[in-house]
Design a protein around this nucleic acid. Structure first.
Length: 281
DNA sequence: GAACAGGCAACTC
DNA sequence: GAGTTGCCTGTT
């Protein structure tokens, strides 16, 4: 992997980074395709706005060395050897195909609160609507961030949402999830759950702590652990995964074969199952 | 109108 | 403990 610092952008050159797959494999909801530009996205993470665009095997991320080293290198998980992980995960023909198909996906290290909150919103919702609700949440309650003359919004802090009432979330049209969002925000803001601390806890303990929150079950807890706490062995099972596991392993999937990277295996399977069910984009 | 969408909790037996 | 049902809202 080569890192090249240009005047206003940092170039990451590697065969193992595919922006389209990384942003569209369902792990995040805050990177939007830039209109009129292919393979170019604008998003906000950790309160910083950026453009990420890809040309061939080069990904260009806005910002210089300081910003790249302090944020984007970790955010895009660029220190990890995904090719070696794919090889280790290829323990059966199906998994090998899924891994091959998902080459280039990187698990983003998102803000813990953002991951928890967006996956609470995701329950029983489709992706366009999740994106819409998350955007509205940020627009209404997030801090504005200027980027190239446009105003974007950071993900709202738990403290901000903790001060709201359920009715304040009515414009989001997120239904019964409003109660869960406020409840989780208060738990975080009041220190009843310490997400930063859970980053260092064993995955099993982190999942148990997350599930103590109202509205957080197995699936959401594993998503928050995988995408927000860096627990790469967390294995969220949603309806897509259920179908894929059922058809490939007869419902008796032995996830321990994928340790310690079951979460990455999950992303490969999820992406593979979904893209073979839809016309290629 | 009914069924469903990247679940969860409360309730049943 | 496995299975069922209501929940907000929007789309098909």
């Amino acid at each position: 992997m080569d890192i090249i610092f240009h005047e206003t952008e940092t170039e990451v050159r590697t065969a193992d980074f595919d922006l389209d797959k990384t942003f569209n494999c369902g792990q995040c909801f805050r990177w939007r395709p830039e209109e009129g530009a292919a393979r170019s996205y604008i998003g906000v993470a950790y309160g910083r706005a950026a453009r990420a665009r890809q040309i061939g095997e080069s990904v260009f991320i806005s910002g210089g060395r300081e910003e790249f080293e302090s944020l984007w290198r970790d955010y895009f998980d660029l220190g990890r050897d995904y090719a070696a992980i794919r090889a280790a995960l290829s323990v059966d023909p199906y998994m090998a195909r899924a891994a091959e198909h998902g080459a280039g996906i990187r698990i983003l290290r998102q803000e813990p609160w953002e991951a928890l909150c967006t996956f609470i919103i995701s329950q029983c919702n489709n992706i366009p609507r999740i994106t819409q609700i998350v955007e509205a949440l940020c627009r209404l309650f997030g801090a504005p961030v200027q980027f190239e003359g446009r105003t974007l919004y950071a993900f709202p802090a738990p403290e901000t949402l903790a001060a709201l009432r359920e009715e304040d979330l009515a414009p989001l049209r997120c239904g019964y999830r409003a109660r869960y969002i406020i409840g989780a925000a208060r738990a975080v803001a009041e220190g009843r759950i310490d997400l930063e601390k859970l980053k260092d806890a064993p995955e099993r303990d982190a999942v148990v702590s997350l599930k103590a929150l109202d509205g957080v079950g197995d699936k959401v807890a594993h998503c928050a652990a995988l995408f927000g706490l860096g627990k790469l062995n967390a294995f969220p099972v949603d309806t897509w995964m259920k179908k894929a596991l059922e058809s490939q392993y007869g419902g008796r999937a032995d996830v321990s074969r994928f340790a310690p990277y079951a979460g990455i295996a999950q992303q490969y399977i999820f992406h593979y199952a979904r893209s073979s069910a839809r016309p290629a984009s």
